[in-house]
Computed example of a mutant assay.
Amino acid sequence: MTLAARSGPLHGIKVLDLTSMLAGPFTTMLLADLDADVVKVEPAVGDRTRGMGPFRESDDRSQALGGYFQSVNRGKRSIVLDLKTEAGVSAFLDLVRVADAVIENFSAGVMDRLGLGYEVLHQVNPRLVYAALRGFGDARTGRSPYEAWPAFDVVAQAMGGFAGITGPLDGTPHKAGPGIGDIFPGTLLALGVVTAVRHAERTGEGQFVDVAMYDAVLALCERIVYQHSYLGVTPGPMGNGHPLLAPFDIMQTTDGWIAVAAPSNHHWRTLTEAMGRPELADDPRFADNTSRVANADEVRKVLEEWLSVRTTADVIAVLGGRVPIGPVNNAADIFADEHVRRREMLVEVEQPGSDEPVTIAGSPIKFSSTPARVHGRGPKLGEDAVESILSEWTP
């Protein structure tokens, strides 16, 4: 497959991608957006998400790429190798010899049983970065009692503490809408890979890098750790509020919902003046953030009363740019937002078998000189040849 011209910050970095589903492919998607040459190594049946969709009614299913696959596999190439055969292993090792990184998210022990674990690949290429993403990590960096457990996003959100502090005030745990139990670990692993490749460039020394989904979600929920340590509390769901800041909430207008965050005294005073209640800025119950947190229910009632008779647009007209606020956008709102267009956060890519492109989320990492960007659609299964990649990668 021919990809867009490359000029990004990871230009020249060669990555073998053995990942599937969301967490691992999100890792390698970030690297591809940053201009690494990412080659998906797939079995004959391909990544499991290839058939998941969604597809448009007009799409030719024999050629089209589903939204799930396109979104996190854009800008990559694809080869098919059977790593259970001698020929497949031989071709893979030829690529490993000239690669900078191998990334996989198999269950613990799968690559070792194939005879392709870190220790073997390190012998083949001592400067290779071997990166793994699993639910509960890898024994090489720390044993877990759950090491052999399979995991998905919702499990990581539950065990890492996220679901336990998310949801209505009645204590019912909720998972996040997006797959943060996959996406945040994938983001951290991309950082780990870049760091380890940098080290290998300086020293010639490769290494094993891994991120556990559980660990990543726990790191994301760092607040509950210090709350438990400092205060001896076990935080629960906070609704849309915050235990340490007020006002800091999502509240209803006459035609929608809006986020309002004014924990600083300056923003609180600005908010009270806009509400026509300037006396509240000096009221002892609300004079500083600590007082407002202690009286959070009263703060919420004051805001609810003011917002309940105004449209979201009216609130934005009064407070936009003065107090941290923002509407609760749905997908249609995002597609219509000028910010998203100007920041190139919606990107059209080719849909095989169709003259009509599809839209996926763009790269949020921006550079002034070496831009990150979507370099093209996802690859068709086995669209590229081992021989051509080897010829490109071999010095």
Rank of each mutant, 00 (worst) to 15 (best):
S7T: 15
G8Y: 12
H11A: 10
G12K: 15
V15P: 04
G24V: 12
F26K: 01
A32Q: 13
L34N: 08
L34A: 14
D37C: 04
K40N: 09
D47I: 09
R48C: 02
R50D: 00
G53V: 11
P54W: 10
P54E: 06
F55Q: 06
R56W: 04
R61L: 14
Q63S: 11
Q63E: 12
Q63C: 06
A64Q: 06
G67T: 11
Y68D: 01
Y68E: 01
F69P: 00
F69G: 03
V72R: 00
R77V: 01
R77H: 06
L81E: 05
D82C: 07
A87M: 13
A91S: 14
R97Q: 14
V98R: 14
V102R: 11
A108M: 12
M111H: 07
M111K: 10
G115D: 09
E119K: 15
E119N: 13
L121S: 05
P126G: 05
P126A: 10
L128N: 09
L133T: 07
G135N: 08
F136E: 04
G137I: 14
S144H: 11
P145A: 13
A148G: 02
W149T: 08
G167F: 03
L169Q: 10
L169A: 10
T172M: 06
A176I: 00
P178S: 05
G179S: 15
G186R: 05
L191G: 13
A196H: 09
V197D: 04
E205F: 01
G206T: 11
A212E: 08
D215A: 12
A219G: 06
E222V: 02
I224L: 01
V233H: 02
V233G: 03
V233N: 04
V233W: 02
P237K: 09
P243M: 04
L245H: 10
D249H: 07
T253R: 05
T253N: 06
D255G: 00
G256F: 09
A262P: 03
H266D: 13
H266W: 12
R269P: 00
T270S: 07
L271M: 12
E279G: 08
E279F: 02
E279M: 10
E279R: 13
D282H: 12
D283M: 14
D283P: 10
D288F: 03
T290R: 14
S291L: 05
E298N: 02
V299D: 04
W306C: 06
S308Q: 02
A313E: 15
A317N: 14
G320F: 07
G320K: 13
G321A: 10
R322P: 00
P324S: 10
D333Q: 05
A336G: 05
E338V: 13
M345E: 07
V347H: 04
E348T: 10
E350C: 04
P352H: 09
G353H: 09
G353W: 07
E356K: 13
T359C: 08
I360Q: 01
S363Q: 12
P364H: 07
I365N: 02
F367R: 12
S369V: 07
P371F: 04
G376I: 14
L381Q: 08
L381H: 07
E383D: 06
D384I: 11
A385Q: 14
A385G: 03
P395A: 15
